[in-house]
């Protein structure tokens, strides 16, 4: 890509969510979302592969539909309340429509169909951007309007996302698709607690970003795109491969790894609000995700395949060791003991 174009695209990609996050006015927030969307379309389609083009079209259509729905609900809200303040979106109908629009942007069930398809069509780095940075702006908007959101609607949506994230991932062999379903399940946890405690949503989001980034960077470094290549990934970097298992367990939320921390706090908040049945259900639904994470771990770390590699000389490639990866792995697996510190600063 032309460096000038690349610079413009990358800076708008960063600028878009920044505008959304800092704005107090609905139109500015919407403008930020649009800038961001327009910037990422060429990035998804950069490969000039039919599948990448298809992914970018899918992404564009869903995001544009969500944006127009959001704009419509903004105008509806303005018509009823007479102001553009994001935190004052008190109209019930428009806040429900906003929920639909923003969850569509996030890729929450039942508006999740675009996410696995788009992620499978692009590169691992674009997957990383789509699953982390692109969630930032819609999630912030949801957190800003959380006063006027409907709790039972959100809880239903998030339970549905956990189920679909778990069950959808069981059927996949492509790692990026699995990460997409894992993203859906995690977003379910974030929206579950949204109306009760936005701090916990943020904490879950940060943890999710850390874990997903580590996982996707590992996938990128080991060049494993599917289960069959995961089997021979130990030849490239045995230590990283072993640590990948810990990271997967952390994504699944097994205590005492980092991934358990937000789940623990969310369950505590839910039981404090007498939502015990929902807490138990969501805890048990996380076992569905655990199953496919552990399957990746079985393929990549636990078993050694009878054939050494898919093609010869795989271990002769000198892979570039990333200095930030050990730090990220430690963060993504051993953060639970310092949870009290998090509680204090948040």
């Amino acid at each position: 890509m032309n460096p000038h174009a690349n610079m413009i695209i990358m800076s708008s990609l960063i600028l878009g969510p920044m505008i959304t996050i800092t704005s107090n006015h609905w139109i500015m927030a919407w403008v930020g979302l649009e800038i961001n969307m327009l910037a990422i379309i060429p990035l998804i389609a950069k490969q000039h592969h039919p599948r990448a083009i298809e992914a970018s079209i899918k992404y564009f259509l869903t995001q544009a539909a969500a944006s127009s729905l959001l704009l419509f609900s903004i105008i509806n809200n303005v018509w009823n309340t007479g102001q553009f303040d994001i935190t004052q979106s008190t109209n019930t109908m428009s806040s429900t429509m906003m929920t639909a629009a923003l969850t569509m942007k996030l890729g929450l069930a039942p508006f999740h169909y675009w996410l696995p398809e788009t992620l499978q069509g692009t590169t691992t780095m674009m997957t990383l951007i789509l699953t982390t940075w692109q969630k930032l702006a819609p999630l912030t908007l949801l957190m800003m309007i959380n006063q006027s959101l409907n709790t039972s609607l959100l809880v239903t949506l998030s339970l549905l996302s956990m189920m679909i994230g778990g069950w959808g991932g069981l059927n996949q062999t492509q790692l990026r698709k699995i990460m997409a379903f894992s993203s859906i399940a995690h977003l379910g946890w974030m929206t579950m607690i949204l109306t009760l405690s936005t701090k916990l949503t943020l904490l879950t989001f940060y943890t999710y970003i850390t874990l997903t980034t580590t996982m996707l960077l590992t996938i990128k470094l080991l060049e494993t795109n599917k289960m069959s290549t995961a089997m021979t990934s130990w030849t490239k970097s045995p230590m990283l491969n072993a640590m990948m298992m810990l990271n997967l367990m952390s994504l699944a939320g097994l205590p005492p790894l980092t991934g358990f921390m937000p789940k623990w706090l969310i369950l505590q908040e839910l039981t404090k609000n007498h939502m015990t049945i929902i807490a138990t259900t969501s805890a048990i639904l996380s076992l569905l995700s655990l199953f496919f994470y552990i399957r990746i771990a079985y393929y990549s770390t636990i078993t050694l395949p009878p054939n050494m590699t898919n093609y010869s000389q795989q271990w002769r490639h000198k892979n570039q060791q990333k200095p930030y990866l050990p730090l990220m792995i430690i963060t993504s697996s051993m953060l639970t003991p310092i949870m009290p510190t998090f509680m204090m600063i948040m």
Binding site: L254, W264, T271, T276, A279, T280, A283, I284, F291
Partner: peptide, 17 residues
């Protein structure tokens, strides 16, 4: 793994309540 976790996640909720 799944037998143990299936039993102990309700325990977690029970302890939290």
């Amino acid at each position: 793994l799944f037998y143990t976790l299936m039993g102990s996640l309700p325990l977690l909720v029970a302890l939290l309540s």
